[in-house]
């Protein structure tokens, strides 16, 4: 009886949550399918009177939207992959060892999240400019990677801590080196945490606007947030293009989420086997 109640409470909660979360998405989708004149029509239409794909067509005719999506995917995935690669090592070390400077490093990571960035941006720009790193997607990969390192290290360290060190101790007794133990035994158990951290880094990069505006000049290297932001003009927000762009920009992230989710589930089963 109690169980049934719990299940139906779950269903109700999930349904309510879905409605609240999905309504804005629904609204953006139907806006993207409305002709310009109907977007702000009054009374409000909850279903377009006439369906049109003009807004999408406009995106690809007026701008290199395909290129922007590609650039964003490239930068976001590359930077997130670099971050994970680097942070696995630092997170692991910080979780497993106590050593001189440990506290300082952890503190240094936490501190990055609070630093005032106002003046720093100007300095960073001058640095990158003098190194001729501007107007290059690699510069974004670099900046995004550095930007997500502290968070990813802190997060991954948390996940490492939850895995009993007896796990790799056992593997090491079996003849593995610490590194092998890390990659063969610990990482598979860690996949949910890695996937979650990856998602996080990816999304941060995917949405980043200020650095992308600052460091990229050419059309060919523009990323999505910059392109979307240009629909906000002096006197108008082009909601037709904006909503179509939003829909297109959400699709890849949902796919990345779905893939990462699989890892979370896989990690679970593997963790269960090992545990």
């Amino acid at each position: 009886m109690q169980k049934k109640l719990l299940v139906s409470a779950k269903v109700v909660y999930l349904a309510l949550h879905a409605v609240v979360m999905l309504f804005p998405l629904y609204w953006i989708i139907i806006t993207s399918l409305k002709p310009q004149k109907q977007i702000f029509s009054s009374p409000i239409h909850y279903w377009p009177e006439t369906l049109t794909f003009d807004n999408y067509k406009k995106l690809f005719e007026f701008s290199n939207f395909g290129v922007y999506i590609f650039n964003s995917l490239l930068v976001s995935i590359a930077a997130a992959a670099c971050v994970i690669a680097i942070s696995i090592l630092s997170g692991y070390v910080l979780a497993r060892f106590k050593f001189k400077g440990h506290k300082h490093i952890m503190f240094g990571f936490f501190l990055t999240q609070m630093l005032p960035g106002i003046g720093a941006l100007i300095v960073l720009y001058k640095m990158m400019s003098s190194m001729h790193l501007t107007n290059h997607l690699a510069s974004l990969v670099l900046i995004y990677t550095v930007g997500s390192i502290p968070f990813s290290t802190i997060m991954l360290r948390g996940f490492f801590q939850r895995i009993p060190s007896s796990l790799e101790a056992a593997a090491m007794i079996d003849g593995c080196s610490r590194i092998t133990a890390l990659f063969r035994v610990i990482i598979p158990v860690m996949l949910p945490g890695i996937a979650a951290t990856f998602i996080f880094a990816f999304v941060n990069n995917w949405n980043e606007l200020i650095m992308a505006v600052m460091f990229i000049d050419s059309e060919a290297s523009k990323t999505l947030p910059v392109a979307m932001n240009s629909f906000v003009m002096k006197f108008d927000i082009d909601w037709g293009a904006m909503s179509a762009g939003t829909v297109l920009s959400v699709i890849p992230t949902i796919i990345v989420f779905a893939i990462a989710q699989r890892f979370i589930v896989e990690g679970l089963t593997q963790g269960a086997e090992k545990g």
């Binding site: 650039n71 490239l74 930068v75 590359a78 992959a81 670099c82 690669a85 680097i86 090592l89 001729h132 501007t134 107007n135 290059h136 997607l137 690699a138 990969v141 670099l142 990677t145 590194i179 000049d217 050419s218 060919a220 290297s221």
Partner: peptide
């Protein structure tokens, strides 16, 4: 550990460097 770190660094650099190659056509204006 030295070897490992080098490989990891090399891996990272090539991962990142690969991307910069991909986008080099956009950077050539510079």
């Amino acid at each position: 550990y030295l070897g490992l770190a080098t490989t990891v660094m090399a891996g990272m650099l090539s991962a990142c460097g690969g991307n910069s190659n991909d986008s080099s056509n956009s950077g050539n204006t510079n």
